[in-house]
Write a protein that binds this DNA or RNA. Structure first.
Length: 364
DNA sequence: AATGCGGGGTA
DNA sequence: TACCCAGCATT
């Protein structure tokens, strides 16, 4: 494997590295946090979350002492909420078992919740200077172009081969520069070696790029297509009580959007009306009987694996309904419209909340 | 080895 | 619309 690109890549990074918040620190806690937030999430999306998060939790001790609800409220909108739950678990573990210090090498880091091979390599190389590789979407794209690799990168054998390449190359990186080199590869992928229309004329290692030489840079990496995602109709209840409060429920940790709050409801079944679906879901989930009233609004939303149309109905408890009890949720709560802002909700529910609060505001 | 897991940006 | 993003845990 030709490693001649390493020197010009490092030189480019020294000159052109963007000034990102997590590059102004050597604090392993901050490096760790940035790497978790950056999983499957673009740099520009992460920055405001990262800065706000560190104001709230400046140290791993502050994070370990947080409540899950408070933490998820901080994470609200960032997605992949298991990252926040795992971060919390790991923080508590670091405080109780590691004396408040992160492990200092990649192998030990991988024992912590939410840290896999990529994240362990990133933290170990950036925070501790260990000569270990990283392989993320950016690096995969750079490598498949640099070495003109035409294999399907979704295949396990290709992933293995790419990790082997990464392992070989890191050995040729100058002592103490592994963190810079790994960041340089990712930054090149993010800013120059982009998925579509890469900026090869500005690439510092273009003369080493086999895909460019073969004029196939736009056809790398090769990925098999994913099947189209299904669409579901989902209902939820805006269940009002006499005090103008709404009933919300907290989702189970092992579910989609685990730990977030929601307006209770669920997915429609074959041949079922929306109203019947909602009445059934509320009976199953909370053991309550409701009168399903008018449609409040519909929200369309796309998840990774499916799309939904969320139908929100005004409801109230029937006089002979049992009080709510959690059958398939962690908790429930009656809250006013303005108090909804204190709880972490998914994007789809936040559209509804925004509308509820706007209408309330206009009435005042 | 395959699948589930969010939400926003981009062309 | 479809693809992409500083991937990981679970089964």
């Amino acid at each position: 494997m030709n490693d001649d690109f390493i020197t010009p890549l490092l030189a480019w990074f020294s000159q052109e590295a963007a000034d990102l918040p997590w590059r102004n620190t050597r604090d392993p806690y901050r490096i760790w946090l940035s790497e978790i937030m950056l999983q499957q999430t673009q740099v520009s999306t992460v920055i405001p979350y990262y800065e706000r998060f560190l104001e709230t939790y400046p140290t791993v001790h502050d994070l370990a002492a947080a409540s899950q609800d408070e933490l998820l409220k901080q994470w609200e909108g960032l997605g992949y909420y298991s990252r926040a739950r795992n971060l919390h678990t790991a923080a508590k573990q670091i405080v109780s078992e590691y004396n408040g210090q992160l492990p200092t090498n990649a192998d030990e880091l991988q024992h912590l919740k939410g840290i896999g091979r990529y994240t362990a390599g990133a933290i170990a190389s950036i925070a501790f200077g260990e000569a270990v590789p990283v392989l993320d979407g950016n690096v995969i794209r750079v490598f498949t172009r640099l070495f003109d690799i035409a294999d399907d990168v979704r295949q396990q054998t290709t992933q293995k081969r790419l990790w082997q390449i990464a392992e070989e190359l890191i050995k040729a990186v100058p002592e103490g520069r592994a963190g810079d080199y790994n960041q340089a590869l990712m930054e090149l992928g993010r800013t120059i070696c982009k998925p579509q229309n890469p900026l090869c004329e500005r690439c510092p290692i273009a003369e080493h790029c086999l895909a460019l030489k073969n004029n196939v840079q736009n056809e790398r990496p090769i990925k098999t297509k994913k099947p189209p995602t299904p669409h579901y109709d989902v209902t939820c209840g805006l269940i009002w009580n006499e005090d103008g409060q709404l009933l919300i429920t907290k989702r189970r940790d092992d579910a989609l959007l685990g730990g977030l709050w929601e307006f209770p409801g669920g997915k429609i079944e074959e041949g079922e009306t929306l109203e019947a679906c909602l009445a059934r879901e509320l009976r199953e989930e909370l053991g309550i009987k409701v009168e399903v009233g008018t449609l409040y609004m519909r929200v369309k939303h796309a998840y990774t694996h499916f799309k939904i149309t969320l139908h929100a109905f005004n409801c109230h408890l029937m006089a002979n309904s049992p009080p709510p009890s959690c059958h398939d949720c962690q908790a429930f709560q009656w809250v006013s419209v303005s108090e909804l802002s204190d709880y972490a909700f998914s994007r789809a529910d936040r559209y509804i909340i925004e509308d509820l609060q706007n209408r309330q505001y206009r009435l005042l």
